[in-house]
Write a protein that binds this DNA or RNA. Structure first.
Length: 551
RNA sequence: UGCCCGAUAGUAUAAUGGUAGUACGACAGAUUUUGGUUCUGUUUGUCUUGGUUCGAAUCCAGGUCGGGCAACCA
């Protein structure tokens, strides 16, 4: 039987609107402000907006909400488009709120003509004071009663640059006593003599969010304008402007934004991490940005699947990063090529294997793929590198790996037995001596010996050296944003750089578009920014799930 | 304090007046040449108090708790 997947509340609304004939088709939009890079929270919104349109045969616009030239930049415009495309979504149009500045100005004039807007000369402090408090109604400023003619003249003078920043604003005349603070004569336009990344110096007045967003939606005939919960109180204003202007009635719906534990999700905080060099940039692999996740090795499919699994609701939530990690493991397990890499090496000598003699073994590329994904060559010899942590001088209970006298399987090779080991003056293990069982070669094992443990290795004579970067969560606390200073909870060990890792030779042909599972260690990919031909740098995307419980 | 929104296992998310289900996690077992994958099983939940009803997670009322709103930010 086929279980029908239940709809989220927005899908229900859309289906109802389509069924009732309210709309023949739907049109959504994704409206980022180009003042920072997109993060995983935006990915949720992108998947929602584009996903809704895809599912119901509608369209989605990308619209840059660029009404504040002081914080916005084309660098962000470019990165945003790159990230959305990388996630696998296609927009119907790219628009900018600034495309509508002329139209918006006309809308404002129209409201002035209707007596629904006025120029206010008060300072920001005076306006704030006159708005009252949630429990005390606001009071009009002396400018509220200006005539329509005067307002028309002053607003045009504002546009023509006759006033300095902050000298005047245009306000909507709504209701100073409204219990909703956003209805107490909100500011529509402010003066900013600032260069805009698209309109240059054409304008010195810029519309506020409340007088740009809904109007832009309406101009584009957006049917379902989906935003996050904090804009809920703006909805009456959104509807008011549309009603007073009598323009296309777009409707706003709100959902709860994504929160992830052990990270921060505000552009302001992420910008701080970048500016104050706590990270390498917006695309640092520890950042929750889309570009960071991409550099880390996350796949578009894993992020889309994550967005699907977390769902859409109106209640506040904090998602466990473990779910994101699950999604990327699930995806990479199916596709990543298996390779061997020793991150923390110790020499292993097979004393009964001839010196200066090598043989070529084979290893499957991916046990999950049809025909094992093919095989790659694996040179084997007398001297190998293995992981330090795979040897214990005094083994603990349930230890399956190497220890004096113990036997393990070398992955895709032979069973070996540990005969002795050498230590330096400080007690560090420097060399392990084993004997191998010639009849135990993988695929041709006639030894009849069964071992519990299998470890990875690389031939010392053939290994290539590489830098490997291991990442941990950027913050020590589940909810760093709740702290007085979120930077206090930065995890000092979030990046571990290993310069002397040994990789199997097949990894010399590693390419940037592929993910690799370093057997028993995790999923890795080349760092697209720092890796050089001949000097590879690998990023750990995520560890393998570790069910082994010591003790 | 005024207005708005929300509350289902540890975390998310279903059940749309009729058996509280699913995923992740955790725990146990099977399989395994990755202590991976896969498979099986176990565990844990309707914020509270009333009301309506044959029947309430769902509808109503009061309470509790959490979030949002008083930027010339979005």
């Amino acid at each position: 039987m086929i279980e029908e997947k239940s709809l989220n509340f927005l899908e229900e609304i859309v289906e109802e609107d389509l069924k009732s004939g309210k709309y023949a088709s739907i049109h959504t939009r994704f409206p980022p402000e180009p003042n920072g890079y997109l993060h995983i929270g935006h990915a949720k919104s992108i998947c929602l907006n584009f996903g809704l349109a895809d599912k119901y045969g509608g369209k989605t616009n990308l619209r840059f909400d660029d009404t504040n030239p002081v914080t916005e930049d084309t660098e962000y415009v470019d990165s945003i488009q790159e990230d959305i495309a990388w996630l696998g979504f296609h927009w119907d149009n790219v628009f900018y709120a600034s495309d509508y500045f002329d139209q918006l100005y006309q809308f404002a004039v129209e409201l002035i003509r209707k007596g629904l807007a006025y120029v206010d000369d008060s300072t920001a402090e005076e306006i704030a004071a006159s708005k009252g408090t949630p429990t005390i109604p606001g009071t009009p400023t002396p400018y509220r009663s200006r005539t329509i003619e005067e307002n028309l003249k002053l607003f045009e003078e504002m546009k023509n640059g006759m006033y300095k920043d902050g000298e005047k604003v245009l306000r909507a005349k709504v209701d100073l006593a409204s219990p909703n603070m956003h209805m107490r004569d909100p500011i529509m336009y402010r003066i900013k003599h600032a260069h805009h990344h698209r309109t240059g110096d054409k304008w010195c007045i810029y519309p506020m969010y409340d007088f740009a967003h809904g109007q832009s939606d309406s101009i584009e005939k957006i049917t379902h304008s989906i935003c996050t919960l904090e804009f809920e109180v703006h909805r009456p204003l959104y509807d008011w402007f549309i009603a007073q202007l009598n323009i296309y009635p777009s409707h706003q719906y709100e959902f709860a934004r994504l929160n992830l534990n052990y990270t921060v999700m505000s552009k302001r905080k992420l910008l701080q991490l970048v500016n104050e060099k706590y990270v390498d940039g917006w695309d640092d692999p520890r950042m929750p940005t889309i570009s960071g996740l991409r550099r880390r090795g996350y796949t578009p499919a894993s992020i889309r699947n994550f967005a699907e699994r977390i769902g859409v609701q109106r209640r506040e939530n904090i998602i466990d990063v473990g779910l994101l990690e699950f999604c990327v493991r699930e995806d990479l397990n199916k596709t990543a090529l298996r390779r061997m890499a020793v991150l923390d090496p110790v020499k292993l000598v097979i004393t009964n294997y001839p010196e200066n003699s090598f043989e070529e073994l084979e290893g499957e590329n991916n046990p999950e793929a049809p025909d094992h994904g093919g095989f790659r060559k694996l040179p084997f010899g007398r001297e190998l590198w293995i992981e330090k942590e795979d040897f214990m001088e005094i083994p603990m209970k349930k230890w399956f790996r190497l220890a004096p006298g113990a036997m393990v399987r070398l992955k895709n090779a032979y069973i070996i037995k540990c005969e002795q080991f050498e230590k330096d003056a400080d007690g560090n293990i420097t060399e392990i001596h084993c004997t191998y069982i010639p009849e135990s070669r993988s695929g041709h094992d006639t030894s009849g010996i069964n071992v519990k443990g299998t470890i990875h290795w690389v031939s010392a004579a053939h290994a290539i050296k590489a830098e490997v970067r291991l990442y941990d969560r950027l913050f020590k606390l589940e909810n760093p944003a709740a702290e007085e200073d979120f930077k206090q909870s930065i995890n000092p060990g979030s990046l571990q750089i290993i310069t002397g890792a040994y990789l199997e030779p097949a990894l010399a042909e590693a390419n940037q578009d592929e993910s690799y599972q370093f057997i028993r260690k995790g999923y890795f990919c080349l760092d697209k920014k720092l890796s050089q031909p001949g000097k590879p740098i690998f990023n750990r995307t995520v560890t393998l799930k570790d069910n082994w419980k010591k003790d």
